[in-house]
Amino acid sequence: MLTVLLAIGILVLLSLIFGAILGYANVRFHVEGDPIVDQIDALLPQTQCGQCGHPGCRPYAEAIANGEAINHCPPGGQATIQALADLLDVEAIPLDGDHGTETAKRVAVIREDECIGCTKCIQACPVDAILGAAKQMHTVIADECTGCDLCVEPCPVDCIDMVEVGVTAKTWSWDKPQGIAATSINIIATDRQAEAVH
């Protein structure tokens, strides 16, 4: 009887100790906010274009964390979808065409002699990449432009073009090899036989 009581007593004591440790750890190492949102946000392209239907990349990251589909980001394209799929351990799905199609990287360019200086594009730009003042010509800081398209719509004189960023010798990258030849290579006798069957 004493043994049983002793065992129960020890277990109670242990549970109290561990409970206290866990409770302390919960308070001491409390994480503010949702870290998964930060991780998702880091993968998104930060164009802040709103094509996903959210006002910026972080809101979409929050939406993904709450279960929204990961294929609503056209600027990120398939690469972002893949990265999100890896992070969230879900299947990579093709880009949802309703939110736009994946395009080559573009930047906004203002046809400066047509600009009337209305500042509407400046207000629309989510990253403050347009420079100008009221009744002064505006221009886009190409290095800061994320190519989000948001400035095109508000322009009353349609003087903003989205121009594809061309590849220069500095930004060029090597192509991926085509991989194992698609056409059958006749190396050994059975290859030839297989071809004959077809």
Binding site: D41, L44, P45, Q46, P126, V127, D128, A129, E144, T146
Partner: peptide
């Protein structure tokens, strides 16, 4: 480079906000 750029864009976006 894209990460650097997107970080910059994020920074600018947040500053603007």
């Amino acid at each position: 480079e894209a990460t650097v750029k997107s970080d910059l864009a994020k920074q600018r976006f947040e500053a603007r906000k």
